[in-house]
């Protein structure tokens, strides 16, 4: 089976700083791949490069064998990569319904359809409800993100990403800043999404949860691939231990 997302030798530097030297990665359909590595290893830069926020200096990105290298972020989003952010970026002053609706209507918005000036936003309320229910936020549909705790905002971002009907979901530190009782149900949500057929790539520092959730781990260090494999093997790999201990 071909990988759903294939990244080949991506490099990216800012000024003189080489954030990504040469990173390759393959995400197989229906797997949860954890991307780990010490701080500054280039994980978030890697995400942003794959998602089209940055154009890679070198290397290629393929989504379902289609070359999407250098495409703008909104086009990559429409092609089927949904993502969340390390520091949450909700649309703060509009209701959760409209937050999700933005992504749900992306094809209507970005194409030149007549409906662009028409109404009919309300008609999608049921679909928005369903997407919010997936992450357990249905009851907050009319509230603005500012009124919700961080954990809820993070879940809202997942719901918004799902509204793109993505093939690949990329989560940037979904558990960071959350308490244990928030993490467990969120991990359950992620697991469920995978069971429903989604392929998930996530960055996470919370190693115990990553080990439990992911079927495979890829380790980055100094902007390069260190190794990848099943969690139980990665856990014992001496290179990973050294990288994390920083010696």
């Amino acid at each position: 089976m071909p990988p759903i997302l294939r990244v080949e030798n991506v490099a990216k530097s800012f000024g003189g700083v080489q954030a990504l030297r040469k990173v390759s990665l393959q995400l197989m359909p229906n797997e949860i791949l954890g991307l780990i590595g010490p701080n500054g290893a280039g994980k978030t830069t890697f995400f942003n490069t794959v998602c089209g926020v940055f154009r890679p200096d070198e290397g290629r990105v393929f989504l379902e064998e289609r070359d999407v290298t250098g495409w703008p972020a909104h086009r990559i989003a429409r092609m089927g990569i949904g993502r969340t952010f390390q520091i949450v970026k909700p649309f703060r002053n509009i209701s959760l319904e409209r937050n999700v609706l933005v992504a749900l209507g992306h094809d209507r918005i970005s194409g030149w359809r007549p409906s662009m000036l028409g109404t009919g936003l309300k008609a999608h309320r049921d679909e928005v409800r369903r997407l919010l229910r997936l992450v357990g936020l249905e009851e907050f549909i009319d509230q603005t993100p500012t009124t919700l705790p961080l954990g809820h905002q993070k879940r809202m971002e997942i719901s918004r990403a799902l509204a793109l009907r993505p093939k690949v979901l990329m989560l940037d530190e979904p558990f960071a800043g959350l308490s244990e009782e928030d993490i467990v149900p969120l991990a359950g949500v992620i697991k469920n999404l995978q069971r429903e057929g989604l392929s998930i790539l996530l960055i996470e520092h919370n190693i115990p949860h990553v080990m439990e959730l992911c079927s495979r781990l890829a380790v980055l260090n100094f902007g390069e691939n260190l190794c990848d494999g099943p969690p139980e093997i990665i856990r014992r790999d001496p290179r990973v231990i050294t990288a994390y201990l920083g010696s």
């Binding site: 998602c51 089209g52 926020v53 703008p72 972020a73 909104h74 086009r75 989003a77 429409r78 949904g82 993502r83 952010f85 970026k89 909700p90 649309f91 703060r92 002053n93 509009i94 409209r98 609706l101 933005v102 992504a103 209507g105 992306h106 094809d107 209507r108 918005i109 970005s110 409906s115 662009m116 000036l117 028409g118 109404t119 936003l121 971002e157 918004r160 990403a161 509204a163 793109l164």
Partner: peptide, 25 residues
Amino acid sequence: KSWLGLALEAIRENEAAAEASGINC
């Protein structure tokens, strides 16, 4: 009241998130 207005709202609130939601800012 339209999709256009929703897109503009999203851009006003957060451009990076709007792009990630498929909006051509």
